[in-house]
């Protein structure tokens, strides 16, 4: 049945794209690029977050198991893990604050807390880079697709009016290729929204984990300050 094959061929994504108006084509290309970008971010961030979570758990376990924090830090000094960065910031502040003869314990505690909080915030800021793109694609892509569809339908109605024929065979292809723009928009937007929520949730959990570590480490260092104060005086 050649007619059926021809109509199926007509409805293939490639043909729908090729038959579309230049504006609709531009919209489709833009949305496709947005989709590629979205998925690139999804793949990158999802894998990175998973890896970081796994390594953070292992790091934390090793950290609290160790007796010599300085040696542990020396061993993991090259580590780029957020938790390692937080630990390094705290130890750096500790060393700076305690190298003087008189140690301001309250000030040191405050500085330790703020340094670690700053480190956590900076790491999360780094990790959440480009997630805003997901949010943008998720909210804007359907509208862009809708714009392409509206434009395409306007154009096909004009063509139908010119053809003086309103049979379904004349109307359907134009509408189909116009709706294809919305389909691509939704195709880009739906994973973007899902991934944004999912990755944001993952980052929130990581932030909670880092904050817990920072508080616990802060408590440890604070205790150490008191011990040094007792032994020093």
């Amino acid at each position: 049945m050649p007619t059926v094959e021809a109509s199926a061929d007509l409805m293939s994504p490639l043909n729908l794209f090729l038959q579309a108006d230049v504006v609709v084509k531009t919209v489709m290309i833009g949305l496709l690029l947005a989709s590629v970008w979205t998925w690139a971010i999804i793949f990158t961030h999802a894998l990175r977050l998973r890896r970081i979570n796994r390594q953070t758990d292992r790091f934390e376990r090793d950290f609290w198991a160790t007796d010599d924090i300085d040696a542990f830090h020396a061993r993991r000094s090259e580590d780029k893990l957020p938790i390692a960065v937080v630990m390094a910031a705290a130890l750096d502040e500790w060393r700076r604050s305690t190298k003087t003869a008189t140690v301001d314990r309250a000030g040191t505690r405050e500085r330790l807390a703020s340094r670690m909080n700053a480190a956590v915030a900076a790491e999360l800021d780094r990790l959440s880079d480009r997630l805003n793109i997901l949010a943008t694609v998720g909210s804007v892509a359907p509208f862009v697709g809708l714009f392409g569809t509206v434009w395409g339908i306007m154009r096909s109605f004009t063509a139908i009016a010119g053809a003086n024929n309103t049979s379904l065979a004349v109307v359907a292809p134009g509408i189909a290729e116009a709706l294809f723009a919305t389909a691509i928009g939704l195709f880009a937007a739906i994973p973007a929204v899902i991934a944004y929520n999912r990755l944001t949730h993952g980052l929130d959990r990581l932030e909670a984990k880092l904050s817990r570590f920072a508080d616990r480490f802060h408590a440890t260092l604070s205790r150490e300050l008191e011990v040094e104060a007792v032994t020093g005086h």
Binding site: S35, V36, W37, T38, W39, A40, I41, I42, F43, T44, H45, L47, R48
Partner: peptide
């Protein structure tokens, strides 16, 4: 990792 993600996408 980002290059790999882009390639996969």
């Amino acid at each position: 990792a980002e290059w790999a993600g882009t390639g996969a996408a």
